[in-house]
Design a protein around this nucleic acid. Structure first.
Lengths: 343, 343
DNA sequence: CTGAAAGCGCTTACAG
DNA sequence: CTGAAAGCGCTTACAG
C-alpha cells in the first residue's frame, strides 16, 4: 500500500549525474582515475538520492559478500561476547557485516553445519574462537570451501591461517610477580583444564615467577582444576583447610577464582585481609562480586578488530604469509588482593 | 593455486538432472506442482554435486535476503546474549542467518546507522531488544525503509509491529508469594530504574502479593535502585543496618541482588540463614555466586525463536495483524532463599 | 506438471 | 579519465 517509490539504483544515480554506471561504481568503490569534479557530482547525487548500493548485487557481481562470520560454541562465554562486540564495531567501520553462527560442539555433523553455512552465505572470511578454532572438522570445512579464516587464541598456530593471541605465560608471570611484590610467599595455584594449552602456559608463568624470586614451588599448594566454579571452590577448600594455609591463591581463570572466594567465605576467611585471590580473564562477574576480583584482561577487542582487518585485507593480497600475532595484556588490580598481613 | 573447480550452479544441476533451471528452483523452494520422480531426481543431483544455492543470487532475484538482523546496544547484557543464541539456532532451522549489529545508544546518528545497515544489507527483518526497541530513531529508520521488525520486551507495544514479552507483574508476584510461603513477612523490595516500565511492573507484583496475604507494604522496606550492582548494595546497606531488619530482600534484578549479597556479607549476615535474597533475570553470575541466587528466568530463547518465526512468516502474510504475546516465565529456586529463621 | 525469457543491480574485463 | 557490453546465479511473471 506504500506509495514510496522503490529504492534508487546505480542507474538512477548515473542518469542524474550524467555519467555511466561504471563511473558511479568507480566513485563508490574509491577506485582511482575519476576526475575530481565528476567524483564530486556523483557523490552529490548519491547523497541527494540517499542511494546505497545493494549488497546482494555487489556480492553476486563482484564475488565478495561483505559478510564476515563469527563461529562460536559457547554463547554464554564472556570471551565470545567481547570478540563479537569488537568485531561488529570494526566491521561497520570497514563496510562489512558480521553474521554469527552458534554451533553445537558435540554434534556429529559439525563439518556439515559449517560447510552449509559457508556455501550458502559465502562470507569473505570467518573468525574462529576456542574451542572451535582448533576443531579439525571446522578447519576442514573451511579449507574445502576456500574460505579464509583467522584463529583467535587457538591451541596451536597453523601454517595456512593467521592467528591472534595473548602471552599467557607472561601474564601469569606478571600476576604472580604482583602477589610476590605484595609480600606473599605461600602462593597457591589452581590449574585449568589439562586439555587446553592455556592451562599449561599459565602454570608455566606462575612457576617462572616463583623461581625468578628464589621461591620453591610447593606441590601442596598446587591444585588441579578444570576452569569451572566448582573445581575452583573444591581446590580452594583443600588449600584453605590446611593448618599452614597459603596467603594468596592464583586461580588460572575467573570462574575458579569466584569459587575460591566462595570457599574462603565459607571458611570465615576475609578477602583480601586473610587471603589474596587473583583470577584470569576479567569476565563480567569479576567486577561484580565482592571483593572485586584482581585479574588479567585479555586484549579481546584488539584481537577482534585485527581479525576483521586481516580478513578484509586478505582480498588485496591473498598470497600473503599468514601472521601470528601476540598482543599485550593488562593486569586489572581490584580489591581481592592486598599486602600480606604479618603475624 | 587450487585446482578445485568452482562451485556448481543451478545450471549444472539442471543439466545433469535433464530439466530446466526453473524446475530445479521449484524443487529447492519446495514449490508444489513437480512430479515426484522429477523432484527425486533433482534432489539426487543436488546431493551428488553438493549444490547449495547462492544467497546473493537468490537475494537479488527474489527480493529477499535470508538475513535477519539483531540490533542491540549493550553487548555485555546477558539478556541479549541469550536472545542471540535462541535466534541463531532457530535461524539455522529455517534457513536464515543472523547478522548482529551493535549500536552506540548515545550517538547522534542512531537513525543514520540503522538506515545504512538496513539499506545495504536488506535484512528480511530485524529483532529489537531493549532499550533500542523503544528508540524512536531506530523505529523511524526501520519504518522508512519498510523493514519488518519485532520488539522483544519493549516498554510499550506498537500497533504496527509484533512484540514478545513476559508477565513481569505476575513473576514478581509469584516470587513474593514464594518468600511469603517461606514464612517471611518483613520482605524488602529494591526497585529498578524508574524510566523502565519493567520496574513499575515488578514493584506492582510485589505489592499485589503482599496485599493478597494481608501484609501491609512498609515504606521503610522499599528502596529505590537503578538495576546496578552498586545501587543494590547501597539499598541493602540501608535496609540491613536498621534495628528491625527485613528477613528477606527481593531485588528487582540480579545485579542488584548480587549487591545485596555483598552488603549482607559485609555486615556479617549469613544468607540464607539470616536473610533470604531473591533476584530477577537469571543472569549468568546468578548461578555462580555463593549462595546461588533464587531468581526469575525469562523465556528468552522462546522469545527469540518466536521473533524469528514471526519475521519469516511475515513474508507469506505481510498484512497480518501484528501479534503481541506474553510468554510464561519460570521461578528458579536456588540457595539464597530459605525458611525464615524463628526467634 | 514444465520451460524460455527477462531481469534483479551491481562488477568485471575490455575498449577507447 | 570514461563507457558499452557481458555476466554473476538465481527468481519472477508468463506461457503452454
Amino acid at each position: 500500500m506504500s506509495t514510496r517509490s522503490s529504492s534508487p539504483t546505480i542507474v538512477d544515480v548515473a542518469r542524474q549525474a550524467g555519467v555511466s554506471i561504471k563511473t558511479v561504481s568507480r566513485v563508490l568503490n574509491q577506485e582511482p582515475g575519476v576526475h575530481e569534479e565528476t567524483r564530486a557530482e556523483v557523490l552529490r547525487v548519491v547523497k541527494a538520492l540517499r542511494y546505497r548500493p545493494k549488497q546482494s548485487a555487489r556480492s553476486l557481481a563482484g564475488g565478495r559478500s561483505f559478510l564476515l562470520g563469527l563461529l562460536y560454541y559457547d554463547p554464554s562465554a564472556a570471551f565470545v561476547g567481547r570478540v563479537q562486540q569488537g568485531a561488529t564495531l570494526h566491521c561497520r567501520e570497514v563496510g562489512y557485516h558480521l553474521v554469527v553462527e552458534s554451533l553445537h560442539h558435540d554434534t556429529r555433523d559439525l563439518q556439515e553445519q559449517v560447510e552449509r553455512m559457508v556455501m550458502t552465505l559465502r562470507p569473505d572470511g570467518m573468525i574462529l574462537t576456542p574451542p572451535l578454532c582448533d576443531s579439525r572438522e571446522v578447519l576442514d570445512a573451511l579449507r574445502e570451501s576456500d574460505t579464509p579464516f583467522v584463529q583467535i587464541s587457538p591451541e596451536r598456530d597453523l601454517p595456512d591461517a593467521p592467528s591472534l593471541r595473548m602471552d599467557d605465560i607472561r601474564a601469569a608471570e606478571d600476576m604472580t610477580n604482583l602477589l610476590i611484590s605484595l609480600g606473599h610467599e605461600r602462593i597457591a595455584f589452581i590449574k585449568g583444564a589439562p586439555d587446553q594449552i592455556a592451562s599449561a602456559h599459565r602454570y608455566q608463568g606462575y612457576l617462572d615467577a616463583l623461581r625468578a624470586h628464589g621461591l620453591q614451588p610447593d606441590a601442596q599448594l598446587i591444585q588441579q582444576g578444570s576452569f569451572s566454579f566448582d573445581t575452583g571452590r573444591e581446590a580452594a577448600h583443600q588449600l584453605l583447610s590446611r593448618t599452614l594455609r597459603p596467603t594468596a591463591v592464583f586461580a588460572s581463570n575467573d570462574d575458579m577464582a569466584l569459587g575460591v572466594l566462595a570457599a574462603a567465605q565459607r571458611l570465615g576467611l576475609s578477602v583480601p585481609g586473610d587471603l589474596s585471590v587473583a583470577g584470569f580473564d576479567d569476565s563480567p562477574p569479576a567486577a561484580l562480586v565482592w571483593p572485586a576480583l584482581t585479574t588479567v584482561r585479555q586484549p579481546v577487542s584488539e584481537m577482534a578488530s585485527l581479525a576483521v582487518d586481516l580478513l578484509v585485507r586478505r582480498r588485496s593480497d591473498p598470497a600473503a604469509e599468514p601472521v601470528h600475532r601476540v598482543l599485550p595484556f593488562e593486569l586489572v588490580v581490584r580489591d581481592s588482593t592486598a599486602v600480606r598481613r604479618r603475624g
